[in-house]
Write a protein that binds this DNA or RNA. Structure first.
Ligand SMILES: [Mn+2]
Ligand SMILES: [Mn+2]
Ligand SMILES: [Zn+2]
Ligand SMILES: [Zn+2]
Lengths: 143, 143
DNA sequence: TTTCCACAGAATAATCATTATCGTCTACTT
DNA sequence: AAGTAGACGATAATGATTATTCTGTGGAAA
């Protein structure tokens, strides 16, 4: 379902499926996230929600987003936002990222280094580089 | 140059090129980063360096890594680590990320959704999903 | 080789993002 | 209508990163 297709109904249905209570705050948080495609951070969502719910707490926004993610209602742009991860490899390459232990492994692959970059990307941007993130559960974390 | 090919010489040469002073701490920080392919965070690097430089400061590690990155000696796994960015779109898609203003734009592309996943990835991991990050300088930031 | 100084390092405080705690409240069940 | 598990709000605590300030030194210049 697209993010702008009857988002409220979709949201309520998803909550019910997961035994999450439907509250005004939760609806407002979801709507604040869905209202455009800007991939906002918690602070922006907090400010949007405050317009209608002036007493909402920052912690509530954090907790709620975490809950939504846990139940698959929303996602994160990257799973590696918690601390900076540095890399001495400056040539183009890709990464295998374990979503559980946060291990990051280099992936060198000729095919991936020569992807056809969509016109949508090149038409209005100067492309610095690109890389593919494979989110995985690694061998060590698999049991 | 590979990260494990005479890394010290490469490091010193790179510093000289950029008028960065070559200090024992800087060499140690670079070596701590290069010693394996683990994409360590500043804390891990700090702990590694402390073995030989017990008085080094955490802040020095941060500043030095920042400097290295600024001059292109090293990179980051993702440029979106600073705050969580949430996404209501749960279907597979990709992102255009401006490295200057941190804008994130959705990219839906059939071709990118069906990349041949290298055996190296599938052989020892359970793939959850993958996405392509196009790091760009966007139109708005381009002048 | 000595001198000098811009830049690097150490210590520490400050800031910013995120998470934990806990008392109160309420959505939903019965 | 009442009961209860879970949600909310307030706030403190933690963790990551950045700023400040003072001291020290690498490397150019004399
Ligand atoms: Mn890498
Ligand atoms: Mn997206
Ligand atoms: Zn793992
Ligand atoms: Zn931009």
């Amino acid at each position: 379902m697209e993010y702008n297709t009857q988002p409220l109904e979709y949201f309520i249905e998803s909550c019910r499926k997961n035994n999450l209570k439907v509250t005004p705050q939760r609806m407002a948080i979801f709507q604040a996230l869905v209202q455009d495609g800007s991939h906002p951070n918690p602070e922006i969502i907090y400010n949007r929600v405050r317009a209608k719910h002036p007493t909402i707490s920052f912690a509530t926004v954090y907790k709620t987003l975490e809950t939504f993610e846990k139940f698959g209602l929303i996602t994160r742009v990257t799973r590696l936002h918690d601390t900076v991860r540095y890399d001495p490899e400056i040539e183009p390459h890709h990464h295998i990222i374990c979503v559980k232990c946060r291990k990051v492994i280099n992936l060198f692959d000729e095919g991936l280094n020569n992807l056809p970059v969509p016109r949508e990307v090149t038409s209005s941007n100067h492309v610095v580089d690109y890389s593919v993130h494979f989110n995985v559960v690694c061998e060590d974390c698999n049991n």
